[in-house]
């Protein structure tokens, strides 16, 4: 078990190194940073001085090593556009994205599993068929369109919910939260649904097909032959077996929720990291882009590491063969 976790951590480190390389390459290949930093009226002497000062005259591996060293301490340099520490900007924006992602993930997982189990058990029921058909809409409509539709219905026509922004926020240390104020919660509803809808349908369809597969297994037949009630069979025996593969996908999708947040944040002008990233792309603000890239990959890697460990907790067969 320990060697299994160590191996996974080793693999995670490798993934981060590779992403770091990609992030770092942006500095070198997406425009010359010197050009970006110095104004129109520069001399060759200015350029050379800055180049030495920033260490850009050193060989590539040395620069990469320095970048990693700095990145490991959370130091990604200064934003070209805002002239502030990138880590500071990111920290300021992170709570908005993380709250949005967490709420929509919660919606997606809770409703996805519930609907998935329901549609599997009532395979040919009217409501189950309706949910299945409706879920097709969720998968096939692009996120931005769903966002715009929701804004049109609930903000423009009905006027119930705000159409953009985060509402009022409360400061808790460095963290700002919108979960404690009424306007904050109201603002969260539409973006959270928009972001979670696709993941929810995906989880639901996956749970349904896995559950149908599990219900065909011999041990479910045997559980019936032992006289266990349908409730125990469905929710104890079948659901636990269903969750084994579903957890892997949920882990991957949690990462995707944070990454997909870019579109939702743009539609709702949500002041999170995704919006920050989009703006950074427009202004070729490479330090911000690199930092965002690294942050997202760290989250992906950590989530998947947790999923792998969870896997071993659920499935005893994984524990011995690790």
């Amino acid at each position: 078990m320990l060697s299994f976790i160590l191996k996974r951590i080793g693999q995670s480190a490798l993934v981060l190194l590779v992403v770091g390389l990609v992030a770092f390459s942006m500095f070198r290949f997406v425009g010359d940073p010197i050009d970006n930093m110095l104004g129109q009226e520069r001399t060759q002497a200015d350029i050379d001085r800055l180049r030495t000062q920033l260490g850009l005259d050193q060989p590539f591996p040395v620069q990469y090593y320095k970048f990693l060293q700095e990145a490991a301490q959370g130091n990604f340099g200064v934003s070209y556009r805002q002239g502030r520490e990138v880590s500071e900007i990111i920290l300021e924006r992170a709570p908005a994205t993380l709250e949005l992602a967490a709420v929509s993930a919660l919606i997606a997982i809770a409703l996805g599993i519930a609907f998935g189990v329901y549609t599997a058990i009532r395979r040919n029921g009217f409501l189950a068929n309706f949910i299945m058909s409706a879920s097709l809409v969720g998968v096939s409509l692009p996120t931005f369109l769903i966002g715009i539709l929701l804004i049109y219905i609930f903000s423009v026509e009905l006027g119930w919910l705000p159409s953009f922004g985060r509402g009022e926020t409360v400061r808790l240390g460095w963290w700002t939260t919108g979960l404690l104020t009424e306007s904050g919660l109201k603002s969260l509803i539409l973006p959270a649904i928009t972001l979670g809808l696709y993941q929810m349908t995906l989880i639901m369809r996956l749970v349904r097909s896995e559950m149908l597969e599990v219900l065909r297994q011999d041990y479910i037949r045997f559980a019936r032959a032992r006289g266990l009630s349908d409730r125990v069979i469905n929710f104890r025996h079948a659901l636990k077996n269903t969750m084994v593969p579903v957890i892997t996908i949920i882990g991957l999708q949690l990462g995707a929720i944070i990454a997909f947040a870019i579109i939702t944040e743009t539609v709702f002008q949500w002041p999170g990291m995704g919006l920050l990233f989009i703006n950074a792309i427009q202004f070729v603000d490479i330090p911000v882009m690199a930092a965002y890239l690294m942050l997202i990959s760290v989250m992906f890697v950590v989530i998947n590491l947790i999923v792998d460990i969870l896997y071993a907790f659920i499935d005893p067969r994984m524990r011995v063969s690790g």
Binding site: R224, R226, H237, N241
Partner: peptide, 24 residues
């Protein structure tokens, strides 16, 4: 269902798949 398992027991062919792998 109440008779199943209580008054009539059942044994299936394949012992490898008759038991739920995730429960002791």
């Amino acid at each position: 269902r109440r008779i199943r398992g209580k008054e009539i027991g059942m044994i299936f062919q394949d012992p490898l798949t008759s038991l739920n792998p995730l429960f002791t």
